[in-house]
Design a protein around this nucleic acid. Sequence first.
DNA 1: ACTGGATCCTGACTGC
DNA 2: TGCAGTCAGGATCCAG
Length: 272
Amino acid sequence: MPELPEVETTRRGIEPHVRGRRVAAVRVRERRMRQPVTPGLEGELAGQTVERVERRGKYLLLYTAAGTLILHLGMSGSMRLLQGGEVPPGPHDHLDIVFEGGTVLRLRDPRRFGLALWTREDPLRHALLGSLGPEPLGAGFDGAYLHTLSRGRRTAVKTFIMDGRVVVGVGNIYASEALHCAGIHPLRAAGRISAERYERLAACIRKVLRAAIRQGGTTLRDFSDGDGRPGYFAQRLAVYGREGLPCPTCGAAIRCLRQAQRSTYFCPACQR
DNA sequence: ACTGGATCCTGACTGC
DNA sequence: TGCAGTCAGGATCCAG
């Protein structure tokens, strides 16, 4: 479920409430995730103070002096901050981090595609993060980068920009949206797109992600920020989930196709 | 080296 | 009301 804007919205929501706070206790109710929750996480994290909360791609990183908690929300994960009184955990509330003073950071993930891992090493060198591509909103990501990397690649451009080794954070919603913004057909072979068009695509990826972050992310069904508020970018989606409705640019009917087991939405008239 | 497909898991929704 | 089938915002592993 969460792509870069939703993870960034989550980061911004929880960071002010947990930065500089000491962990009083950690409760793990369900260890079965994409990988098992790190054994001993409870003892490692308890007593530590969260120094900062960062994001790398779709990963959230809670840094402490002793190590780092790596969180991933998978398809269905979300985080909630609870204040004071005890709110009973639901069936998919797998992890609570209880801070001194009573604030609780709670991870919910019904499908358990997410992760909660502890590392004492540099998390950016962790096996899961080490081969990630550049941040789309950071330096090192532009049209020239995409153009160079894509030479000789026959895979569809939509699949290409959703590959975390190419660029992080672009998931199924924002891939469709960025390609529409750039006027590029999602099935076009990545290696057969010009440098000029990749400049436009890189700019569109940034534009779409920034706009989504400003709106607090996209809530399709259950995404919410740390305080339980939904995101409002769904109202701004040009193509995603809009099969049959008119393209906001040209009015043609939006179409949907399946690509690598994922739905792709596009405008057959203005995307070539 | 690349590529597409299957897969992990639960819940919501559709149609019979 | 129940049940089967389909789909969902991610990422990895596998065979070809």
